[in-house]
Design a protein around this nucleic acid. Structure first.
Ligand code: FES
Ligand code: FES
Lengths: 155, 155
DNA sequence: TTTATATAGAATCAATTTAGTCCTATATGT
DNA sequence: ACATATAGGACTAAATTGATTCTATATAAA
């Protein structure tokens, strides 16, 4: 199945952690310790997130990072886009001219549709949703895609 | 974003192609030519699909492959599972003990939920759905404004 | 029976991607 | 000044992926 890069996974954990105190300034070292990744790795992730304007950075002593916006205005889709780029579920569903047969391809449009639905779902999931450990409750508020899976398929 | 392996992409194209004549026997070479991939690559994919019981194989002269079941009883999720294994969106959302902090991880359950929703969507999408041309840039003689009435999600 | 065809399966190789680290430059507070 | 901390890039190592090649086996037809 689709796999999210581990760096992106860490990125979401870091962002969710920071979302618990939105105004606070966290140093890279502190965050590395908090989520359990190596310091250089956390630093790399944070630099990327800052460059993509999801975080603000403060240099110098007592510097660090803080969320650029309130947790409910930062979506998971944005975090993924920042750390992985806008790749779709299939490579050829994004840009044209990658597949030799592209015209004869019957599944292309379907992948694009799935890609779109997934993207909508992740765009509606915010840091606010992610930071609460409510494993039992669904964030029902808005879940654009995947709401009515047909589920008539073969087991 | 989540990327599907190219082999899996080819696999779905091949399966969709075969779904147009469910009872027919296709040789690996024929399918390779039809979907535009190298013969050994197609062969590799077909062997895997046969081993996972999505295709039946016939050896010897005039041998080849044919769908093991009717197109509407083969889901895209099954094809993906056969070619990529049951990996989830994040590695740690599947098996336990991979992440050092796993307990403190606030996002794990959310990824699992997304994974589940995506899986449901793909389990409800069959080869029958995939084989009919969509609306992308294809030489298409269907009237505009159509859409698949019983399809879910993206719509 | 012999021959041509076609899959089964494993092993292999090259290329790409990813994870992780390191180094230098720069900015800021004490 | 000095210590702290990010910016940015280069770099290495590991894992994954894409594609190929080989031998063995099964079947249809000559
Ligand atoms: S366009 Fe690439 S496999 Fe369909
Ligand atoms: S359990 Fe692995 S990042 Fe959360």
């Amino acid at each position: 199945m689709f796999r999210l890069s581990r760096l992106t996974d860490y990125g979401t954990v870091i962002m969710a952690h920071m979302a618990r105190e939105p105004g606070r300034v966290y140093s890279a070292a502190e965050l590395a310790g908090a989520v359990g990744v190596a310091a250089p790795t956390a630093s790399k992730i944070l630099k990327t997130l800052a460059r993509k304007a999801l975080l603000h950075s403060l240099r110098g002593a007592h510097g660090g990072y803080l969320l650029a916006r309130p947790p409910r205005e930062i979506s998971i889709a944005q975090v993924i886009d920042a750390l992985e780029g806008p790749l779709g579920v299939t490579e050829c569903s994004v840009a044209a001219g990658l597949c030799p047969q592209e015209n004869a391809c019957a599944v292309r449009s379907h992948w694009q549709r799935i890609d779109w639905a997934l993207r909508q779902t992740l765009a509606g999931l915010t840091l606010e949703d992610m930071m609460q450990p409510g494993s039992a409750g669904m964030p029902d508020r808005r879940r654009p895609g995947h709401d009515r899976p047909r589920s008539d398929g073969p087991g």
